[in-house]
Design a protein around this nucleic acid. Structure first.
Lengths: 197, 197
DNA sequence: CTTAAGTTGACCATAGTGGTCAACGGAAAA
DNA sequence: TTTTCCGTTGACCACTATGGTCAACTTAAG
């Protein structure tokens, strides 16, 4: 059995993510968490403090997960694929967290210090992502920066399609192997397109 | 000055889209529309009927816009780009409509007849999209279906990035030329990647 | 002047809001 | 056994917002 605080946080993620701060309901949160009203306010004091706890917790988890991840392959396509896998791993282990954070980032009332933390983290993980990456095997008859854009968009588009299929309930989360296998074949095609022969 | 009904519909789109049916507020709709409470219920009878009116109107507009659009170029990349332009044109002329519809489609309480209409429309416009398209100029040393997937994802990823930038207010809607110009260059690179030399 | 269509906003019963607090249960300490 | 204490409960509070109504008002046409 997970701790009461964690249960509340998890439920709060979902509620804040789908309705935004002001329209989120503490009643729905405690129902979803299977916990009484008093417990929430005993632990978190107020709706606003709960919201901030969510943000801090989410940032913390994201940073931890990202730091624990080791990029290994130097090829640009492989590296972007590794990034995609990192995102998916976080999504798997902490559902609703990623969406909660990206929604919170768009929230105009978000305290500046959190926005700052997120900006810093973004920059740091961008450096981490590009560290040791080798673009020398990209074909050199075409502008590399444009190719890198195209590769990024392609993987983003694929991820977006997966997200949509997941939202529509068309994906079997128990058995993701086939998707990975199939996508590896797409990756092979990409390598033949973008890399030197 | 646009008609009262249209003003209400437009405000309703926004409210339903951002909060979903049950959490949408008729009070906020009439405020946004600059119209009194009575007028809304005089025209639409109830919140539910208003919701259904929105759906019907949105489907109608989407079908009309799509039918009016003529695909012209036979190349696969060009054709997918034309699709992107069609989507953007609808987005420009009827802001909130596309997002409203795709959110409504995910709504579990959506009456079956509307889901049916949307499915039919999707299939029809897919045929329309692929009619007369010529894939013979795709390189034939790689599987065409995989390349077509990659092309689709690339454009989707680009559109997604634009959407994000727009949400963050980083895009000047008054002056979109530079974006188009720049993206045409990306398209040229794509053609060199995917088409025969 | 009459009529009718369009529009208003105060008003209604009801449901939901964030937040409080006296009471409770159970386990460990005395 | 009794006392203490901490996590937990849910009825309750004042208050706001909800979808919807309706008598009264404005406006323009006949």
């Amino acid at each position: 059995m997970q701790g009461t605080k964690e249960k509340i946080l998890r439920a709060a993620y979902k509620e804040f993510e789908s309705h935004g701060y002001s329209l989120a309901s503490t009643n729905k949160i405690v129902n979803e968490a299977g916990v009484s009203k008093g417990t929430l306010f005993n632990y978190f004091g107020s709706k606003e403090k709960l919201y901030h706890s969510c943000i801090e917790h989410a940032i913390g988890v994201t940073i931890t997960e990202t730091n624990a991840f080791q990029y290994e392959k130097p090829g640009f396509i492989e590296r972007m694929y590794e990034l995609m896998q990192l995102k998916q791993a976080i999504q798997m282990r902490h559902p609703e967290l990623t969406q909660f954070l990206s929604k919170a980032y768009l929230d105009k009332t978000l305290p500046e210090k959190y926005r700052q933390q997120l900006d810093e983290f973004r920059e740091k993980s961008l450096n981490q992502l590009l560290e040791g990456v080798d673009v020398s095997n990209l074909r050199d008859d075409l502008p590399k920066d444009r190719m890198m854009d195209l590769i990024r968009w392609t993987l983003d588009g694929y991820a977006e399609q997966m997200k949509n299929m997941w939202q529509m309930g068309l994906i079997d989360l128990e058995n993701l192997e086939p998707y990975y296998e199939d996508f590896e074949k797409h990756l092979d095609v990409m390598k033949k397109l973008y890399y030197k022969e």
